[in-house]
């Protein structure tokens, strides 16, 4: 079983975590056509290579970012989400 280094809880068994897929920039839904919104909702990039992913430490409900190579399954980096999400989002 792999170990994932949680920025809050340290290295833990990966069975304690939930992967929530690639980090995408959330567009303002009100500015998108139906087609654009459907594309955003349902089409994932499925990138082969290094991706930024959402992971959650289930026991503490802590969300953070993992940089992972989807080809080798190598975890390159983990860090708190506020390194990416810095500003309050308004609609």
């Amino acid at each position: 079983m792999k170990i994932l280094n949680c920025p809050l809880n340290g290295p833990r068994n990966i069975s304690e975590f939930i992967c929530f897929g690639e980090v995408t920039d959330m567009p303002n839904p009100n500015e998108l056509s139906d087609e654009q919104w459907a594309d955003y909702m349902w089409m994932s990039n499925n990138t082969a290579g290094v991706v930024r992913e959402w992971w959650c430490h289930a026991a503490t409900s802590y969300w953070f970012i993992v940089e992972r190579n989807t080809i080798t399954d190598e975890i390159l980096k983990t860090y708190p989400a506020n390194e990416i999400f810095k500003e309050r989002v308004e609609f």
Binding site: C56, S61, W63, N82, R88, V89
Partner: peptide, 23 residues
């Protein structure tokens, strides 16, 4: 509830609203 709580935290990790959520 566990999923609701987790989902709330996920969204607010991105929105950064001034709110505190506890299960």
């Amino acid at each position: 509830v566990d999923n609701v709580y987790r989902t709330m935290l996920w969204w607010n990790t991105q929105w950064r609203l001034d709110v505190d959520i506890t299960n």
